[in-house]
Amino acid sequence: MRKRDFLTPIGITFGFIMIMLAILTKGGTEGVNSFLDIASIFVVIGGVIGSLLINFKVEQIKLTNKVLKEAFRQNNQRLPALITLFISLSERARREGILALENEIDDVEDPFIKKGILLAIDGVEPEVIQDIMSAELTAMEERHYRGRMIIEKCGEYAPAWGMIGTLVGLVLMLNSLEDPATLGPNMAVALLTTLYGTILANLVFLPMASKLEIKTEEEVFLKQIIIEGVIGVQSGQNPRILEEKLGAFLSGDMMKEQEKEKAAKFAEESFHEA
Rank of each mutant, 00 (worst) to 15 (best):
I241H: 13
N76E: 13
V32D: 04
F112S: 04
L212S: 02
S90A: 10
V220A: 02
M140R: 15
M255P: 07
F56H: 13
N202I: 06
G28H: 13
E218S: 14
E213S: 13
L68D: 06
S88A: 01
E96S: 14
G252Y: 02
M1F: 10
R78V: 10
L246F: 12
T25V: 13
K115R: 15
R95A: 11
A71V: 07
F86R: 04
P185Y: 05
A190Q: 07
E102H: 08
G123H: 08
G252D: 15
F205P: 06
V108Y: 04
K262V: 06
A120Q: 03
K69D: 07
Q60S: 15
F14M: 02
V43K: 11
D253H: 15
P126A: 05
A135Y: 12
L246Y: 12
T194Q: 04
G165R: 00
K3Q: 03
I150L: 11
L68W: 12
K262W: 05
Q234R: 03
Q130H: 11
T198I: 07
G197V: 01
E269H: 00
R143I: 09
K260P: 13
K265I: 02
K265A: 08
L63C: 10
G184Q: 14
I49K: 05
L242T: 05
T25R: 15
L167C: 04
E156T: 00
V233L: 13
F6K: 14
S88L: 01
L170C: 06
L53Q: 09
V124E: 07
P9F: 08
L183E: 01
C154Q: 06
R240C: 08
I150N: 12
L68R: 08
Q237P: 06
A139M: 11
D253Q: 15
V58C: 02
I151R: 10
V48L: 00
I98S: 02
L195M: 14
K114E: 10
F56L: 07
L101I: 02
A39Y: 06
L21G: 03
S40H: 05
I17Y: 01
G147W: 10
S210R: 03
I199M: 11
I54F: 12
E59D: 15
R240F: 12
G236D: 08
T25E: 15
A248V: 02
F16E: 09
T13L: 13
E268A: 03
L250D: 01
L195A: 06
E257I: 15
L7S: 13
E243N: 11
G162C: 02
L206W: 13
A22H: 11
L246T: 02
K245T: 11
N55L: 09
I129M: 08
R92N: 05
L177R: 04
F271T: 00
R240I: 10
A188Y: 02
L203H: 03
L177S: 01
L174A: 04
I225S: 09
V44S: 04
V128K: 14
S40I: 00
A71D: 01
E243L: 09
E91D: 07
R240W: 10
E156K: 01
L52M: 15
T25A: 13
F221E: 06
A209V: 01
N238F: 14
T193S: 12
F6W: 15
F16Y: 07
N175M: 14
A81Q: 11
T84I: 08
S40R: 07
E141K: 14
E244P: 05
M140A: 13
I83R: 12
A139E: 12
E268V: 03
I54P: 09
D131N: 13
T25S: 13
L137R: 11
